[in-house]
Simulated assay, not measured.
Amino acid sequence: MFFELIATFAVGIAAAGLALVAGHLSRGRLPRYSAPILAGIAMLCYAIWSEYTWADRTLSTLPESVEVVSAVEESRFWKPWTYVVPQVTRMMVLDRAGVQTNPTVPEILLADIYLFGRWAVPVKRPQLVDCAKAARADVSEAALADPSQAEWLVVGVEDPVITALCQS
Protein backbone atom coordinates (compact mmCIF):
# COMPACT_ATOMS: atom_id res chain seq x y z
CA MET A 1 0.00 0.00 0.00
CA PHE A 2 2.83 2.38 0.86
CA PHE A 3 4.59 1.74 -2.45
CA GLU A 4 1.38 2.41 -4.38
CA LEU A 5 1.03 5.72 -2.58
CA ILE A 6 4.60 6.63 -3.53
CA ALA A 7 3.93 5.54 -7.13
CA THR A 8 0.78 7.69 -7.25
CA PHE A 9 2.74 10.73 -6.09
CA ALA A 10 5.48 9.98 -8.61
CA VAL A 11 2.92 9.85 -11.43
CA GLY A 12 1.47 13.18 -10.27
CA ILE A 13 4.90 14.83 -10.11
CA ALA A 14 5.80 13.48 -13.56
CA ALA A 15 2.52 14.74 -15.04
CA ALA A 16 3.01 18.17 -13.45
CA GLY A 17 6.56 18.25 -14.84
CA LEU A 18 5.28 17.46 -18.32
CA ALA A 19 2.69 20.23 -18.01
CA LEU A 20 5.39 22.69 -16.95
CA VAL A 21 7.59 21.68 -19.89
CA ALA A 22 4.63 21.99 -22.27
CA GLY A 23 3.87 25.43 -20.80
CA HIS A 24 7.48 26.50 -21.32
CA LEU A 25 7.55 25.18 -24.90
CA SER A 26 4.29 26.98 -25.71
CA ARG A 27 5.85 30.22 -24.43
CA GLY A 28 3.35 30.68 -21.62
CA ARG A 29 0.18 30.00 -23.61
CA LEU A 30 -0.92 27.26 -21.20
CA PRO A 31 -2.54 28.52 -18.02
CA ARG A 32 -0.51 28.19 -14.82
CA TYR A 33 -3.14 25.94 -13.25
CA SER A 34 -2.66 23.27 -15.94
CA ALA A 35 0.16 21.57 -13.96
CA PRO A 36 -1.85 20.80 -10.80
CA ILE A 37 -4.92 19.84 -12.84
CA LEU A 38 -2.91 17.45 -15.01
CA ALA A 39 -1.17 16.03 -11.91
CA GLY A 40 -4.53 15.38 -10.23
CA ILE A 41 -6.00 13.72 -13.32
CA ALA A 42 -2.89 11.55 -13.77
CA MET A 43 -2.95 10.47 -10.11
CA LEU A 44 -6.64 9.58 -10.30
CA CYS A 45 -6.12 7.61 -13.53
CA TYR A 46 -3.18 5.73 -12.01
CA ALA A 47 -5.17 4.87 -8.88
CA ILE A 48 -8.08 3.57 -10.96
CA TRP A 49 -5.74 1.55 -13.19
CA SER A 50 -4.04 0.10 -10.12
CA GLU A 51 -7.34 -0.93 -8.53
CA TYR A 52 -8.68 -2.60 -11.69
CA THR A 53 -5.50 -4.49 -12.55
CA TRP A 54 -4.41 -5.79 -9.14
CA ALA A 55 -6.05 -9.20 -9.68
CA ASP A 56 -4.34 -9.77 -13.03
CA ARG A 57 -1.02 -8.51 -11.67
CA THR A 58 -1.34 -10.81 -8.65
CA LEU A 59 -2.17 -13.81 -10.82
CA SER A 60 0.77 -13.11 -13.11
CA THR A 61 3.13 -13.70 -10.17
CA LEU A 62 1.65 -17.13 -9.41
CA PRO A 63 2.59 -20.43 -11.07
CA GLU A 64 0.78 -21.70 -14.17
CA SER A 65 -0.91 -24.44 -12.12
CA VAL A 66 -3.25 -22.05 -10.30
CA GLU A 67 -6.82 -21.42 -11.37
CA VAL A 68 -9.25 -18.74 -10.19
CA VAL A 69 -12.34 -20.55 -8.95
CA SER A 70 -14.19 -17.50 -7.65
CA ALA A 71 -13.82 -13.75 -8.03
CA VAL A 72 -15.86 -11.18 -6.11
CA GLU A 73 -16.70 -8.00 -7.99
CA GLU A 74 -17.87 -5.04 -5.95
CA SER A 75 -19.04 -1.48 -6.42
CA ARG A 76 -18.35 1.26 -3.88
CA PHE A 77 -20.18 4.57 -3.57
CA TRP A 78 -16.90 6.51 -3.14
CA LYS A 79 -15.74 5.03 -6.47
CA PRO A 80 -18.67 5.87 -8.76
CA TRP A 81 -16.98 4.34 -11.84
CA THR A 82 -17.32 0.91 -10.17
CA TYR A 83 -21.07 1.08 -10.77
CA VAL A 84 -20.31 1.06 -14.50
CA VAL A 85 -17.58 -1.61 -14.31
CA PRO A 86 -17.35 -3.37 -10.93
CA GLN A 87 -13.83 -4.16 -9.74
CA VAL A 88 -12.51 -7.48 -8.44
CA THR A 89 -11.78 -7.06 -4.75
CA ARG A 90 -11.34 -10.69 -3.67
CA MET A 91 -10.61 -14.01 -5.33
CA MET A 92 -10.30 -17.67 -4.45
CA VAL A 93 -7.52 -19.55 -6.24
CA LEU A 94 -6.99 -23.32 -6.50
CA ASP A 95 -3.51 -24.80 -6.85
CA ARG A 96 -4.07 -27.72 -9.23
CA ALA A 97 -0.47 -28.94 -8.96
CA GLY A 98 -0.88 -29.53 -5.24
CA VAL A 99 -4.06 -31.65 -5.37
CA GLN A 100 -3.45 -34.95 -3.59
CA THR A 101 -5.36 -38.13 -2.82
CA ASN A 102 -5.03 -40.61 0.00
CA PRO A 103 -4.68 -44.21 -1.27
CA THR A 104 -6.91 -45.49 1.54
CA VAL A 105 -9.74 -43.04 0.64
CA PRO A 106 -9.23 -42.12 -3.05
CA GLU A 107 -12.60 -40.37 -3.35
CA ILE A 108 -11.42 -37.58 -1.02
CA LEU A 109 -9.11 -34.92 -2.44
CA LEU A 110 -6.76 -32.63 -0.56
CA ALA A 111 -6.37 -29.24 -2.24
CA ASP A 112 -4.76 -25.94 -1.35
CA ILE A 113 -7.08 -22.96 -1.70
CA TYR A 114 -5.62 -19.46 -1.57
CA LEU A 115 -7.74 -16.45 -0.66
CA PHE A 116 -6.57 -13.11 -2.05
CA GLY A 117 -8.07 -9.76 -1.17
CA ARG A 118 -7.19 -6.24 -2.14
CA TRP A 119 -5.04 -4.78 0.67
CA ALA A 120 -5.15 -8.11 2.55
CA VAL A 121 -2.52 -10.73 3.27
CA PRO A 122 -3.07 -13.89 1.17
CA VAL A 123 -4.38 -16.86 3.15
CA LYS A 124 -3.75 -20.54 2.40
CA ARG A 125 -6.68 -22.81 3.32
CA PRO A 126 -6.06 -26.54 2.76
CA GLN A 127 -9.39 -28.23 2.06
CA LEU A 128 -10.61 -31.81 1.98
CA VAL A 129 -13.08 -32.30 -0.86
CA ASP A 130 -15.53 -35.18 -1.23
CA CYS A 131 -16.81 -35.10 -4.80
CA ALA A 132 -19.43 -37.82 -4.26
CA LYS A 133 -21.12 -35.93 -1.43
CA ALA A 134 -20.31 -32.42 -2.77
CA ALA A 135 -18.80 -31.52 0.58
CA ARG A 136 -15.73 -29.66 1.85
CA ALA A 137 -13.90 -29.58 5.15
CA ASP A 138 -11.06 -27.55 6.59
CA VAL A 139 -7.94 -29.62 7.11
CA SER A 140 -6.96 -30.56 10.66
CA GLU A 141 -4.58 -33.14 12.10
CA ALA A 142 -7.49 -35.44 12.96
CA ALA A 143 -9.04 -35.02 9.51
CA LEU A 144 -5.79 -35.85 7.76
CA ALA A 145 -5.47 -39.06 9.75
CA ASP A 146 -9.12 -40.01 9.37
CA PRO A 147 -11.34 -37.98 6.96
CA SER A 148 -14.48 -39.11 8.82
CA GLN A 149 -13.29 -36.93 11.75
CA ALA A 150 -13.47 -33.79 9.62
CA GLU A 151 -16.25 -31.25 10.07
CA TRP A 152 -17.82 -31.67 6.64
CA LEU A 153 -19.90 -28.91 5.13
CA VAL A 154 -22.21 -29.98 2.32
CA VAL A 155 -21.93 -27.13 -0.17
CA GLY A 156 -23.53 -28.64 -3.27
CA VAL A 157 -22.28 -29.12 -6.80
CA GLU A 158 -22.54 -25.38 -7.58
CA ASP A 159 -19.74 -24.57 -5.10
CA PRO A 160 -16.79 -23.16 -7.07
CA VAL A 161 -14.24 -25.49 -5.47
CA ILE A 162 -16.41 -28.58 -6.06
CA THR A 163 -17.01 -27.47 -9.64
CA ALA A 164 -13.30 -26.89 -10.30
CA LEU A 165 -12.10 -30.14 -8.75
CA CYS A 166 -14.90 -32.59 -9.44
CA GLN A 167 -16.35 -31.47 -12.76
CA SER A 168 -13.03 -31.48 -14.60
Rank of each mutant, 00 (worst) to 15 (best):
F77I: 15
T53C: 08
E64P: 06
V84A: 04
G17Q: 01
V93D: 01
Y52V: 14
L30E: 07
M91P: 02
L59F: 10
S75A: 07
A22V: 11
E74W: 04
D56R: 14
T89L: 09
L20M: 13
A55K: 10
A35L: 03
S50A: 15
R32G: 07
R57F: 00
G40T: 11
P31N: 10
V84C: 00
P36V: 00
Y52W: 03
Y33R: 09
P36G: 10
P86K: 00
S50R: 10
P31M: 05
A42D: 08
R90F: 08
R29G: 05
V93W: 04
L59C: 11
R32T: 08
A47W: 10
I41R: 06
R32K: 07
I48A: 15
H24C: 04
A35W: 03
L62N: 06
Y52T: 14
G17P: 01
I48T: 15
T53W: 03
D56A: 15
V66C: 04
L18I: 15
I37K: 04
G23V: 08
A42P: 10
V69W: 02
V72C: 02
R57T: 14
A22K: 05
L59Q: 13
S60G: 11
A55T: 12
A42N: 08
G17L: 11
W81P: 05
I41M: 12
V88A: 07
M91H: 04
R29S: 12
V21E: 02
Q87A: 11
W81R: 03
R76I: 05
S65Y: 04
S75T: 10
A71N: 01
S50T: 14
R32S: 06
E74P: 03
L18M: 12
A71S: 09
